[in-house]
Design a binder for these strands. Structure first.
Lengths: 345, 345
DNA sequence: TTGTAGGCGTTATCAG
DNA sequence: CTGATAACGCCTACAA
């Protein structure tokens, strides 16, 4: 009953060594450098270890080797499925490579970025995976570089940093072209605060470029600072005459809200209004109408990020030129995007 | 340029001690037992520490104190927003209390539960927050108890274990009553694999109880083993005559898919079919129709779980009777649930 | 192939 | 209030 099996001796490795008739060094090697241990010895040690349910103490090992086998992940929030999906990919790949993940969310607050990095540094993570607001000005990123551990930026594309992303600018340009092909002329972009995210800026640039190229008015930018308020604000705008026939949203969460706003404004999507998102969150596929969107391989991005930092980890010294990865995106047809209404231009 | 500031001396605490003119013991105390250090000394040390950007090495501290200030979280997946929301709550509360989180997902695979726990144990977490398939048979849970660290079960309700949950059984019973009040007689329950989750079972029991109490046929259980296939399967069923007028889903993700299935079957929700979910994921509020559902306070549940284990942590010895927490749920009206079609019974 | 032993950075005990 | 000093459990030259 009383689980007071208080072993004060501890040092289970000693126990294993004793029972196996070897030194603790050999036990250690059995785990870390098995090939250096005679097979016979090894299997004895392994047997005993299993019996005693012994496994090396990670803190001790970390202290000694200066390697924690923990990676730090900093991202805005897990409440946006795009990051949850990304995290899922990260988790899988990390596990495969023997890393654990400690994450911190910034809630889109710049101040939190730096704090998150500090916290993770104090946990002596071996590397960082970061989704920052803006790589160019990020003090968090500075801190990471100062420390010299490997890192990779997710979703950003910034020369001089290892990034994993898709070309959002190009994607948006193509999207505009597609919409124009469907007869849309009045197209508005809905975005979160542009300055809060270089991803949003990237996509916005594509919007402007695409519109300009077709000679369309690219001035319709609807910035919704707080996602919570997006619906009301959008509904108002959509109720006005002269409203756009298509809404291009900077991310899927906004697109979903835009669809709701349209509904509140008495519009039917996609009959009266086309709405397209960006991110390709899975849940968009289950919605009705199914969300039309530009799909990024979020989980893969997560996986690749682990590959990158963990490779950099091993490479260590050879600080090569920084290798970024640009992945493919694609347009998911969905059902929230259709031909522009007749006589609408 | 070359960041080869290779300090071979390391031991920054020594440096701090030296510059502050004290021993490393005092430096340590300044961080851990500030009240034992003369204010004057303390501020000197703090100043130097800040200058050198010194912070205690966690691994060393963990090794010495046998406390990592890391908590382990095991949950099915982050791709279901219900767990992502929960995790968000966990993260906030953990941060407040100085804990970091390492999580592992099971992907609803029993085998992974135990492996996840082992992995986390090897990372010497100070406690566990678990969302397991079934507390009664969980070997993972056994392992945790064997180790003797504090833990708490999320979403489960099982005597003998500290649990944080809402009363899903009662909630479903009440829901049935509500639907009956709206004229629904043919009500079916849509669930994932029952045996894969005691939460689902709990809710199902409530469904049966509620139906029986009203003298309704409670035999309509639609089990969709793989969520991925839910839509197709449901659409088929909904296309048949004699279909239910209301669908009660064991979770919101299923409800969203049910709505899609209804659409594919040519039905309009809620005019032709009412659909209700369970969980209260936020995104349900942004959908059109807004998801009617039973809302659990997911983030709060996460927060409370941290409170529980971290308190148990400090209490340590006094193993009190196990205190579970049952939180309030509520029905979110939404728009996916309405009066039953005329002449439908 | 295996053993010996120093030290990773802290904390806690015990003196002073 | 402060200092000296053992561990904490492991890894890795270096020796054997």
């Amino acid at each position: 009953m009383s689980q007071t099996s208080s072993r004060r001796t501890s040092a289970k490795i000693q126990e294993v060594a004793r029972l196996a008739g070897v030194s603790i060094a050999t036990v250690s090697r059995t785990f870390n450098l098995p090939e250096q241990v005679k097979p016979a010895t090894r299997s004895v040690v392994e047997g005993i270890a299993r019996q005693l349910a012994y496994y090396p103490n990670r803190s001790a090992s970390t202290l000694r080797t200066q390697r924690s086998k923990v990676l730090g992940v900093v991202l805005p929030t897990l409440l946006n499925p795009v990051f949850a999906e990304c995290m899922a990919g990260i988790a899988v790949a990390a596990k495969e490579r023997g890393y654990a993940i400690i994450h911190a969310t910034t809630e889109y607050q710049l101040a939190n970025e730096e704090q998150a990095v500090s916290e993770l540094q104090s946990r002596s993570v071996d590397g960082f995976i970061l989704v920052v607001s803006n790589p160019r000005t990020s003090r968090a990123l500075e801190r990471v570089r100062a420390q010299g551990v490997p890192y990779v930026l997710l979703y950003s594309r910034e020369a001089g940093h290892p990034c994993i992303s898709v070309d959002g600018e190009k994607a948006l340009e193509e999207l505009i072209e597609r919409l124009a092909g469907l007869g849309h002329r009045r197209i508005a972009m809905v975005s979160g605060q542009l300055q809060a995210s270089d991803r949003a800026q990237q996509r916005y640039r594509g919007f402007v470029a695409g519109m300009s190229r077709l000679g369309l008015d690219a001035s319709s930018l609807i910035e919704v600072p707080f996602v919570e308020t997006a619906v009301g604000r959008l509904a108002e705008l959509l109720a006005q005459r002269g409203r756009p026939s298509a809404l291009v949203c900077s991310n899927d969460l906004l697109a979903i809200r835009a669809i709701r706003a349209a509904h509140l404004a008495g519009l039917v999507v996609p009959r009266d209004l086309s709405v397209v998102g960006f991110d390709g969150i899975r849940i968009g596929e289950d919605m009705t109408p199914m969300l039309s969107t530009i799909v990024q391989p979020n989980e893969e991005m997560g996986r690749r990020s682990i590959a990158l930092v963990s490779d950099a980890q091993s490479a260590a010294s050879a600080r090569r030129p920084v290798e970024s990865v640009s992945l493919e995106y694609y347009f998911r047809e969905g059902e929230s995007c259709a031909r522009a209404p007749e006589g609408y231009s």
